[in-house]
Amino acid sequence: MGRPRAFDVDEALDRALRLFWRQGYEGTSLSDLTDELGINRPSLYAAFGNKEELFRKALERYVEHHLILYREAFAKPTAREAMEHLLLGLADAQTLPRGPRGCITVQGALVSGEAAAPIQKELAARRLAGEKAIRERLEQGQRDGDVPPHVDCADLARYLNTVTQGMAVQAATGTSREDLRRVARMSLAAWPT
């Protein structure tokens, strides 16, 4: 029977998440991870597997905590209210005073090479899942009568998802919360009638 771990796995995972979020997947080395987590490589491998597995676990943690906003938004009575809640909520969430700014699914893949192709695909799939969720909420709005029947929900979802990703990039580079909220409101001004 092995010795018990001398570190808190959940806290270590949170620290790894913040590091990957700030530096991206490829920008984060194993040395960065062991320094940030305060553990040696054998402990990192034993607890999390390799760097890719640790990134995937961190990404799952991100999804668990940060996609609550999507659920809250999609529970709003109309599709327009749902998208307003989502866009304004993302402007707030991506500019929290503590922690990394932006979105790990966008920043994690902005700069990466061939070695990170599996991670790029994973992040692209996550972004597409977000777009699909938006499209499904818009389609529900269309069935409920609050999205006009002539609207192509796939196109509108792609547009809104592109706005959210652009907001994430802007947040990561220091754009203020209020400026991102203005972007959200401007996007909503184009809501189809």
Rank of each mutant, 00 (worst) to 15 (best):
R3C: 05
R3S: 11
R5M: 11
R5L: 15
F7R: 01
F7I: 06
D10E: 15
D10C: 07
E11K: 10
A12I: 03
A12K: 07
L13R: 12
L17M: 10
S31N: 14
E36Q: 14
L37I: 08
L37R: 00
N40C: 13
R41A: 11
P42W: 06
Y45F: 14
Y45Q: 09
G49F: 02
F55P: 02
F55K: 00
R56E: 14
L59C: 03
E60H: 12
Y62M: 06
Y62F: 11
L67A: 03
L67K: 10
Y70A: 12
E72W: 06
K76Q: 14
P77Q: 07
T78P: 00
A82Q: 04
E84F: 02
H85C: 08
G89K: 00
R98S: 12
R98K: 10
G99L: 08
G102T: 07
I104C: 06
T105L: 12
A109I: 03
A115D: 10
A117Q: 13
G130H: 05
A133M: 13
I134Y: 01
E136M: 10
Q140F: 06
Q140C: 09
V147I: 08
V147T: 03
P148N: 05
H150Y: 13
V151R: 01
D155M: 12
Y159A: 11
L160T: 07
T162G: 15
T162M: 09
G166R: 06
M167R: 01
Q170W: 10
A171Y: 03
A171L: 02
T175H: 06
T175A: 13
E178N: 14
L180G: 03
L180V: 02
V183Y: 01
S187L: 02
S187I: 00
L188N: 01
A189M: 10
A190K: 04
T193A: 10
